[in-house]
Design a protein around this nucleic acid. Sequence first.
DNA 1: GTAGGGATGGTCT
DNA 2: GACCATCCCTACA
Length: 282
Amino acid sequence: MAGRKRKLLVTAVAPEETVTVNENNNSTDSNHKTTFVNLKKFPQCENTQCAETERSHYFLNSDLQRKLGEDFFNQPCVSLAKEFLGKVLVRRCADGSELRGRIVETEAYLGGEDQASHSAGGKRTKRNMAMFMKPGTIYVYPIYGIYLCMNVSSEGEGAAVLLRSLEPLQGLPLMRQMRAARRKEGARQLKDKELCNGPSKLCQALNISRCFDQRDLASDPEVWVERDTKTSSVRPHDIVSAPRIGIDSHGEWAKKPWRFYLRGHPCVSVVNKEAEKLKGNE
DNA sequence: GTAGGGATGGTCT
DNA sequence: GACCATCCCTACA
């Protein structure tokens, strides 16, 4: 079965075009309009029709689009970080086009006692004010001088969820263009799964700039989150809990298993095989 | 595919 | 002045 291909009709992105999808792995064809969902590991995508076709209907039928309101964001940080998995982040561009990506990896930063959080000890600065604003407030901050990360505040003083990785669903050519703008001229072309597999990469691909800081994800016309009603909900077994990335200097707090990702998903930035073997993650 | 190292400049102390 | 919730490129297996 490896390598077998089938034709799919993509009605929402390009109504007249067909795309070829390798149903066994995440490889792509040359026109960049393919899905890279690993259909074996994500059976919810392998319905009577393919995931891409399903999504096409999903995009066209407004009844099936479920924009998440403030109630969704008003839950404890760890809970929200898990609930984000499988939801769809949408970015509407100035020209009306929409970019979509399914959230596949998050991290919870609890604020207050969490020494790895920007709001540790209740510390408020000009930069992290969004973490203390109402649940659903976007916190965009620059890191390493040249990159950005996007968080969403949750219930709890100074608590927020970092969005780490997306599975690109719609608008891949534009995402690729946005990502290429930051890379060397002549650099190899990025695979689909590499477009949003990191916190700064997703900001680049979706053109999330610092002007989105302190904006409300529940009411903003340019960025929001949708419930994906066309795929089955994420089961607890699908979620891997692992230590957070890049906070080694924070001792015990670095070991807290507050990074969450979808098991086996090709778009996860860092797979933690040890964590996947642990009780509760197996 | 994976590991290692360099680039980079905003933020905080 | 040090730190940093990252990324990219290169070398190597």
